[in-house]
């Protein structure tokens, strides 16, 4: 029906004025944090990742309760014994219980990897963003330091220092952090220099918002996706880095164990005693997968333009 047929004059009140009754937010306003949480939890993958990580953490904390052995106990009766009711995951060539070692190694690796990655991410985010926002001399000096640290042979220094400390895992954290933040700081800086030209940063400055606050509220959250990726890749990379150090004999030293040292030892006997390799390998894989899933979920939750946002 497309004819121009006569219709009644509309009953729109053309002189109507908008109601002046005050409107208020009636329900409780959702805070930004709640909104982000909601968006994060909406992603199935992210929740799965969180569950896997939670199980890994539980295993590292409480796994010791399920075995009579400690990671350093030696059972001379069973050297390189396959899994049995006595040693559910078998033993290694020195007679250590693999289950107890896995619990301890996971604990060690988680603490090292998560703290190193968290510290380097925070440091690189702050240094990179502050340098970019303040500009001028501060920027030049910071970039100078970053570039200098990038060219020093950090792996050598790292190896030397950690060996001096006798493989103490706390020293390892410090050393890995000190030499680990520069590259990311540079990436953050590059991204933040483009952000500092944005109008909302200018707007904040014209409102009289302080510099540190601008960096914390406007610059860093807007490179959030990058930081999340940096952090999750950092966790995985630290486990690998620590493995590499252990391999050349500089990382965590016996009798202490980490997933890295276990993987190394297990790799030699993968055909004769596969459990020694597959137990740590499965744990590392689970950790990697959980970090990747969490990373994806966080990135989408933080990005208001992504579809997982829905109506939030």
């Amino acid at each position: 029906m497309t004819a121009n047929f006569p219709g009644p004059v509309p009953t729109v009140d053309l002189g109507a004025e908008p109601s002046t009754a005050e409107k208020r937010m009636t329900r409780a306003r959702l805070s930004r944090r709640r909104l982000y949480l909601r968006r994060f939890l909406r992603s199935k993958g992210a929740v799965a990742g969180l569950v896997i990580l939670g199980l890994l953490v539980l295993f590292a904390l409480l796994g010791g309760e399920f075995t009579p052995y400690s990671y350093s106990d030696v059972d001379f009766a069973g050297l390189t014994a396959p899994p049995s009711p006595d040693h559910i995951l078998g033993t290694d060539s020195a007679g250590n219980d693999t289950f107890a070692q896995a619990v301890h190694g996971l604990q060690r690796s988680l603490v090292i990897a998560v703290s190193v990655s968290a510290l380097t991410t925070v440091i690189s985010a702050f240094v990179g963003a502050v340098a970019a926002y303040l500009g001028g001399t501060t920027e030049k000096v910071v970039l100078g330091i970053v570039h200098f640290l990038l060219v020093v042979p950090s792996f050598l220094i790292l190896a030397l220092v950690s060996q001096k400390a006798g493989g103490d895992w706390r020293v390892l954290i410090v050393v890995l952090t000190v030499f680990g933040w520069m590259y990311n700081a540079r990436v953050v800086w590059a991204l933040a220099t483009s952000l500092r030209e944005r109008e909302y940063v200018l707007a904040a400055r014209f409102m009289g918002v302080g510099r540190v606050r601008i960096v914390l509220r406007h610059l860093i959250p807007n490179i959030g996706s990058l930081l999340v990726v940096t952090f999750t890749i950092g966790v995985v990379a630290t486990v690998q880095g620590e493995t590499a150090l252990s391999f050349i004999g500089f990382g965590v030293q016996p009798p202490d164990v980490s997933l890295g040292t276990m993987l190394n030892d297990g790799a030699d006997t993968v055909s004769s005693a596969p459990w020694l390799f597959y137990v740590p390998a499965v744990l590392v894989t689970l950790l990697t997968v959980s970090m990747a899933l969490i990373g994806d979920g966080l990135r989408d939750a933080l990005d208001p333009t992504s579809r997982s946002g829905g109506g939030a």
């Binding site: 904040a204 009289g208 959250p221 959030g224 208001p304």
Partner: peptide, 21 residues
């Protein structure tokens, strides 16, 4: 678009000048 920080809610955006003073 460019003048509003995409990571803040409208509440935080409108509160910013108030907090700044």
């Amino acid at each position: 678009m460019g003048a509003l920080d995409p990571r803040l809610t409208i509440f935080d955006i409108l509160a910013e000048p108030l907090r700044a003073v």
